[in-house]
Write a protein that binds this DNA or RNA. Structure first.
Lengths: 215, 215
DNA sequence: CGGAAGATCGGGTTATCCCCGATTGTTTCC
DNA sequence: GGAAACAATCGGGGATAACCCGATCTTCCG
C-alpha cells in the first residue's frame, strides 16, 4: 500500500515539481493537489490522505490554520509543513497547530522523503513527542541553534546584543548601561566570537530569531 | 541537440522539482544548478547554457543583477525569470535587465516549457518584443505596492541594501558589484537618507520586511 | 586556595562614516 | 530638442567607530 499524499501549495509549478519527485518513489503517490488551505481541508476530509504536504503561505486559509483544522478533523492524517521561513515563531506556531514536521524549502528532496516515511512509522498522532522529534529534526536547517542565546551568552551580553539589534550605537548602549564604550565593545567582540557571527546585520537576524528583538 | 538549461534557485527542493520536470522533456537537459546569483553567473560563463532559469530572490547577487550580468557577459544565453512577485516594478526591472521572459511561480510547468522553446526560436536577443509578450502573460495579479523598496530605492541601491543586510562589508560589496568602495558608500548614504534609517540593524530589519533578505 | 568566568577598561591600528564635490549617461518633461 | 532631474560612478579628508591585543577586578565554586 502506497503512502497517499495530498499536496497543498499555492504555486502550481512547485506542486508539479513535488509531484514529479514524489512519483519517482515507489512507495508514495499523490492523491490530489490544491492551491489553497480551504480546499486542502475539504480534500483531506474526502480523501483521508496519509500525509498532507503543506505550504505556510496560501491564499484564503493559511497553512497553519489549515493544519490545525486537518489535524483535528481528519483522523490519521499527518501534516508536514514545507516553508521558506526559518523563523522560530513560525516553527513553534506550526507545531502547536499539530504538524508532525517542519521542513525548510532549501532542504533536499531526500530529506522530505525520509520525513514522510518517518511520520508514517510513528502513529497517526505523534503529537506527544512532537517537541523533541521535530526540534531535533530541523536542527540542521536551522543552523545549530542547540545553544540558544541563554545557554551561550551571558546576561550582560544579551543586553548588549538586544540593544545592538535595536539599532543603538555602541556609544548609546554604553550610556544606557552606564559603562564605558570600551566595555560595550568587548561585550560585542565576545558575542561575535561565541556566535561566530561578524556583522551587525547577521547579529540582528540572530537576535530576531532568538526573540531578543522584533522586526 | 537538446536545449541546455542552467537552474538558479535558492531552494534545493524547488531546484530538484524543476530538474525532475525538465528531464521529462525529450528536448531539454539541465546542465547545472546553483543556489545563488554569483555562481549562476560563473556557471553561465563556463557552460554557456541556452537558457538560464532564474529566481529573483537569491542570496548574494540577486536574480535581477545576475540576469543583467549574464545577458551582458554570456553571448547566446537567454534568461527566463521565475518569480513569486507579481509586482509591476519587479517585472519591469527584470526585463530591463535583459530577461527574455518573466513567469510567475503559479504558472503551470507546461507554460514554462513552451516559454523555453519559444525563447529558443527567437534569436538569442529577442529583447525587442519582450514587453508585450510578458506583460500579457501575468496580466491578472498585478498589484501596486507603493510603499515598498521598489518605489523608493533604485535598483542599484536595492542591490547594495540586500548585500548590507546579508552582513557584507562595504569593501566586500564593492568587490562583489565591481565598483569602488566610494560608490558603495554613496549608495548606502542615499539609502539611509531616503529611508531615514541610520543603523545597519534597522536597515536589516527593513530589508527582511521588504523581502530583500531572509532570516 | 586556585582557577575559571564574567564584567570592566585602555592603547593602537584599521576600517568605516559622513560631509563635500564631480563626471557621465539616461529619463523625463515642457 | 533642450533643460532638468535622476542614476551611477568615483575621489578627498577629517571625524568616528570598529577591531585586536592585553589587563585588572570581582565572584563563585570545587
Amino acid at each position: 500500500m502506497k503512502i497517499r499524499i495530498l499536496l497543498a501549495n499555492d504555486h502550481a509549478i512547485i506542486r508539479e515539481g513535488l509531484r514529479s519527485l514524489i512519483e519517482r518513489q515507489a512507495d508514495m503517490e499523490v492523491v490530489a493537489e490544491t492551491e489553497n488551505g480551504r480546499s486542502a481541508l475539504q480534500l483531506a476530509r474526502k480523501l483521508t490522505p496519509d500525509v498532507v504536504l503543506m505550504d505556510i503561505s496560501m491564499p484564503g486559509l493559511n497553512g497553519i490554520e489549515a493544519t490545525r483544522q486537518i489535524v483535528e478533523g481528519v483522523p490519521g492524517a499527518r501534516v508536514i509543513v514545507l516553508s521558506m521561513h526559518s523563523d522560530k515563531r513560525f516553527v513553534a506556531e506550526t507545531l502547536k497547530a499539530g504538524a508532525s514536521r517542519y521542513l525548510l524549502k532549501d532542504c533536499a528532496f531526500e530529506e522530505l522523503a525520509s520525513a514522510i516515511r518517518s511520520v508514517m512509522e510513528s502513529g497517526p498522532y505523534p503529537r506527544t513527542r512532537i517537541g523533541k522529534t521535530v526540534i531535533g529534526k530541523h536542527a540542521h536547517p536551522l543552523k545549530q541553534d542547540e545553544h540558544t542565546v541563554i545557554a551561550v551568552l551571558t546576561p550582560r551580553e544579551r543586553d548588549v546584543l538586544q540593544l545592538m539589534a535595536e539599532g543603538k550605537t555602541t556609544r548609546n548602549i554604553a550610556s544606557l548601561l552606564h559603562v564605558s564604550v570600551k566595555t560595550v565593545e568587548t561585550h560585542r567582540q565576545h558575542i561575535m566570537a561565541k556566535l561566530d557571527i561578524h556583522s551587525i546585520a547577521e547579529l540582528t537576524k540572530y537576535a530576531i530569531r532568538e526573540g531578543l528583538t522584533s522586526l
